[in-house]
Design a protein around this nucleic acid. Structure first.
Length: 649
RNA sequence: GCCAGUGUAGCUCAGGGGUAGAGCAGCGGUUUUGUAAACCGCCGGUCGUCGGUUCAAAUCCGGCCACUGGCUCCA
């Protein structure tokens, strides 16, 4: 009666008392039977727990169902164990590594010994998983001592788990057991396997143990699971939709770029449509930069190796650069970055503090030897163009310059309707990864942090993500279907000014070191275009579309009117083409729709007689007849204002 | 680079030991058309590449190349 009570606070703020050591399930039951039935785990404070674990303290509690991130995490974590159980049944000699839940599902790393696992095996494993799930095996939690845990895995000869246990601190080590499978695991898990109704093993990969290239490569099996078959089907449809946006597919269909084995892997060729797209993006940024006080420069594609030895890039990135070539008695290299060239331009003449900040911009093409397995369409290539710029400024100007650069970057992504998350990438304790004095680093990191706060930015700090010469501000954008991409970066650099002996004469008539800001909002034009294609699913805003308008004549009799309209549009810099083929209008419309041309103008007898055009909008259909002049005004306004398509964010 | 896959006409794909097939595209005709595919005909491939097995290889086996999904890496 007088047993101790604990107070739990629910997500809606309600507080309720429960007897100490009540379980999550009991708490859920006290709210509703339905909730108890759907509950997968609970989150107490920031710890996720099993439903049957006793709750021994006050705290914020939430009951995790499938509809919550923590619930799905629990569900997929348990699914990983189910995968392992199935594999243990089918391949008794398999040794298990780690099997965590991930953003979309789960994976398990497994040592299959000499056996190679192919796609054919996956179906067998899937079926076994479903069979085992139906056994309704409970996930049983068991606390063990470190010695017990080690003894268990030494006995069954699993060196991976032994390796893991050795690194655990001595607090609480737990095993989870379901059916015939026992696993070292922190938990939590769903009550039993019967909730897992649908399973799909999606990918097969080699994965190095603990991510170390020198360790053994295990077989990683990726999968996803759901509490209902229908959810799996919906998920597969979603995956299919995402594949329809794939820039490799659309890039080919829309004539954006091509790859050619004779040219070489990772070296994209920009086709005419892609070139229009890219040049339009470049002009957009170039004009914005001119407005913001940048000066454009052009530098060559190769340089003497000495340049990169001076910058310090050469030893750091030797393996990911094309081999140097011998020229006369010197060694030259394809340029892997633009910065050193710009530093030399800065040094071309003596700078006064009155000259600063100097902002040098270049759409600079660089070449990096990416590993063959890493190449991917346009998003990972060996030759690409950065929208690079370097800002040389005084310490006093630094914060304002960072602000201006952040402002530019935010402006750019807003133009494409892409929400941005900001990450401050700082160094960690691994001194070997970084160059320059620790003192400079700390200063730069502090300044970045101050700027972010002064601008009221929402950000998170991630240690260990800095570049070798300085901390970064990374912009992580989300595309139209919610995927995240790391794009623009802003980097503060105190190292290169030293290495290149960059100076300016201050008001005190003494020489001082400038600070450098490296920045690239798009990052790489190739990668950005690949992301844009997928973001817009190829349905570009009018200002970006390679062909903005197609004029379709009802019959050849109206071709001359079509041409006349086209000429007038061209006079206003609209990219227009005429389809005057001897085809039926339905066929012309179909072709224009398939090419994702934003505006189609249908012209026939009516339009010729009253100087009008019948306007059709891509994906929307017929939007009515307008006078030619009205249409001209509409489209030019849409281009000038860089309007986004209505269906995008 | 490593693991698992894929490679047949410009594109999408079928065929699966007895020397290739469709649709679309292209080209030539006919048609002159009102909001997502008119009709007829023609052209088009040493089946990624090199080698092996075989009387015979697009098909089976192996090396290489390219591509895809991961791992590692990413100035």
């Amino acid at each position: 009666m007088s047993s101790e009570q604990i107070t739990l606070t629910f997500p809606d703020g309600a507080k309720k008392e429960f007897p100490k050591n009540s379980t999550g399930l009991e708490v859920a039951e006290s709210i509703s039977k339905g909730l108890a039935r759907n509950a997968l785990s609970i989150t107490l404070g920031n710890v996720i727990m099993d439903l049957d674990q006793p709750i021994d303290r006050d705290g914020k509690i939430s009951i995790n169902t499938w509809d919550t991130e923590d619930g799905q995490y629990t569900f997929w974590h348990s699914s990983a164990h189910l995968l392992a159980e199935a594999i243990q049944e089918l391949y008794p000699d398999a040794k298990f590594g780690i099997g965590p839940p991930i953003e979309n599902g789960f994976y398990y790393d497994i040592d299959f010994g000499d056996q190679s696992i192919g796609k054919d095996h996956l179906e067998k494993i899937e079926n076994k998983m479903i069979e085992l799930a139906r056994n309704k095996s409970e996930f049983k939690r068991r606390v063990v001592t470190k010695e017990e845990a080690l003894a268990h895995y030494r006995k069954i000869g699993n060196e991976y788990k032994v390796d893991l246990i050795k690194d655990l601190d001595d607090s609480v080590i737990t095993f989870y057991e379901q059916g015939s499978f026992t696993d070292l695991c922190r938990g939590p898990h769903i009550p039993d396997t019967s909730g897992i109704k649908a399973v799909k093993l999606t990918k097969l990969a080699g994965a190095y143990w603990r991510g170390d290239v020198n360790s053994k490569q295990l077989t990683r099996i990726y999968g996803i699971s759901f509490p209902k078959q229908k959810m799996l089907e919906e998920y597969l449809v979603q995956v299919e939709e995402a594949q329809k946006r794939d820039h490799k597919k659309l890039g080919k269909e829309l004539g954006i770029y091509m790859m050619d084995a004779m040219v070489g892997p990772g070296l994209p060729l920009w086709l005419p449509n892609g070139t229009v797209l890219r040049r339009t993006l470049e002009s957009f940024l170039r004009e914005e930069q001119v407005r913001r006080g940048y000066q454009e420069v052009i530098t060559p594609h190769i340089a003497n190796l000495e340049l990169y030895k001076t910058s310090g890039h050469y030893p750091y990135y030797k393996d990911s650069q094309f081999n140097p070539m011998e020229v006369d008695d010197d060694e030259y290299m394809l340029k892997p970055m633009n910065c050193p060239h710009h530093h030399r331009i800065y040094s071309n003449n003596l700078k006064s503090y009155r000259d600063l900040p100097v902002r040098l911009a270049e759409f600079g093409t660089v070449y990096r030897y990416e590993q063959s397995g890493e190449l991917n369409g346009m998003s990972r290539v060996r030759g690409f163009t950065q929208d690079d710029a370097h800002i040389y400024c005084t310490h006093d100007q630094l914060k304002d310059e960072i602000k201006a650069v952040i402002d530019l970057t935010q402006f750019v992504f807003k133009t494409f309707g892409m929400p941005v998350d900001i990450r401050l990438s700082f160094r960690d304790d691994n001194n070997e990864k970084y160059g320059g004095d620790l003192e400079y680093w700390e200063r730069a990191q502090q300044e970045i942090n101050e700027v972010a706060d002064e601008m009221n930015l929402e950000y998170k700090i991630v240690e260990g993500e800095a570049s070798f010469y300085g901390p970064k501000i990374d912009f992580i954008i989300r595309d139209a279907i919610g995927r995240k991409w790391q794009l623009g970066t802003v980097q503060v650099d105190y190292v290169m000014p030293e290495r290149f002996d960059l100076t300016y004469v201050g008001s005190d008539n003494e020489k001082h070191r400038p600070v450098i800001i490296h920045r690239a909002p798009f990052g790489s034009m190739e990668r950005f275009v690949s992301i844009l294609i997928e973001h817009f699913a190829g349905d570009f805003p009018v200002w970006l579309a390679p062909t903005q308008c197609k004029i379709l004549s009802i019959s050849e009799d109206y071709n001359s009117y079509a041409e006349k309209c086209a000429d007038k549009l061209r006079d206003h810099n609209i990219r227009v083409s005429v389809d005057g083929r001897s085809e039926q209008i339905g066929a012309k419309i179909r072709d224009a729709e398939k090419s994702k041309t934003p505006y189609m103008l249908i012209v026939g007898e009516k339009e010729v007689s009253d100087e009008s055009v019948s306007v059709r909008r891509h994906k929307k259909g017929d939007i009515g007849t307008f006078s030619f002049t009205d249409f001209l005004n509409t489209i030019t306004e849409e281009v000038d204002q860089l309007k986004l398509p209505e269906n995008s964010e």
